[in-house]
Nucleic acid binder design. Structure first.
Lengths: 208, 208
DNA sequence: GCAATTGTTGACCGCACGGTCCATCAAACG
DNA sequence: CGTTTGATGGACCGTGCGGTCAACAATTGC
């Protein structure tokens, strides 16, 4: 039935996949990232994946499912990065600053060019696609929780005043970060964007 | 040649338009606002405008031109609102607070539902459509200038410290506002959004 | 080696899209 | 009223879309 779930345990495999599933998903994800959902045609997906239409459908289902899969891959990956970024820094306050600055410090300026796939998808589809909206909420809530945790840690470390609500601060930081993503997409030059990011970080994260 | 420019001065008019051009543009603008560019079909545009395809094309040109016209109508209108909002308040600081809170206070919650057409368009098209990118930059720069002017006024009125750069502050406020628009689109409930908006306004606009 | 099973491929399908065109109609003018 | 002019709207068109499918290839178990 569900060929999309290809594992080695269900029945016997007559012929193994000739492609790396994750690699294909990443290529597809990049295509959606660059062009958006509606503006990406099946032909585009075939091109970037290197697979035939039939294989794509056999392995992942239709365009919508493929998109959701790519989106989930994106949120998982960037969620992992976020978690690592927030937990690896010796001081939580530095991690929070880095979080706000992320749209600017992105390696290769990917975020400035094509923004955040989750944000792009939210703007394009959230009003019409319940699945995308659900994924947006899920990601947003997870991010808020993660950031709030670091805010709490920064408070414990004495870098942030105790009288602010961690969750509320996390939401403000997230809004600031997404605002920067937006301004990057208007073509604002990187230096000005960096300056604005610094301003926001300074105002929202006063040092003690 | 250019039938898109319908005025009473070029040649003699044999038969006047049977529709209100502005009314059509507003209807079209709302359709694009609700569904986005790619997801809006010509049939949709015919439906909401009440015109036939031929009339639509004769009067406004193709879908792309029609979109740009609707977008310009939007930026003009909301630019007018912004200017009025910023200049009508007795104290500039209050106007700046209202600016940040705008995505929340929007009458009917339109902004929360479908966001800001300019932002939506930027996310959907800015990377692929130079015209939209140009419009985004134009709008962004005009808004920044307008807000910066109010920041300066708030400084003159003694409500904001003199040591901050008005333009830099304006960019931070704009980023915050757009971040709130984004969070509204993730389906965040209005109360939480309002609280976050207040937090941002308080941090970015300390009272003297 | 053969049958069974599943992955692979590209030709193919129906459809809806953006866009064009023209027969018709209504207003303006003498 | 007749002529002229432009507006009108729906029939029509070619194209590219998302999606399907049947023939073929590759692997496994016997």
């Amino acid at each position: 039935m569900d060929r999309a779930v290809n594992n080695c345990y269900a029945g016997q495999m007559a012929r193994p996949r000739q492609f790396d599933e994750e690699q294909v998903i990443r290529a597809v994800r990049d295509q959606f990232w660059d062009a958006g959902y509606a503006a990406t045609s099946l032909e585009d997906l075939v091109r970037v994946s290197g697979l035939g239409k039939g294989s794509l459908y056999g392995a992942f289902g239709d365009k919508h499912r493929l998109f959701l899969k790519a989106l989930r891959e994106y949120t998982d990956t960037s969620g992992g990065y976020l978690r690592e970024m927030l937990t690896s820094a010796p001081r939580a306050l530095d991690a929070l600053r880095a979080f706000v600055m992320a749209p600017v410090n992105d390696p290769g300026g990917a975020a400035a060019r094509r923004g955040c796939l989750m944000a792009n998808s939210t703007y394009e589809l959230a009003t019409s696609d319940p699945d995308v909206l659900a994924e947006a909420r899920r990601t947003y809530e997870a991010t808020t929780a993660l950031v709030a945790q670091s805010v709490g840690r920064a408070q414990d470390e004495g870098d942030l005043p105790r009288d602010v609500d961690p969750v509320e601060t996390a939401r403000a930081l997230l809004a600031a970060q997404q605002g920067l993503v937006f301004m990057g997409r208007t073509g604002l030059d990187i230096d000005t964007l960096t300056a604005t990011a610094r301003t926001l970080a300074a105002k929202l994260l006063p040092d003690a």
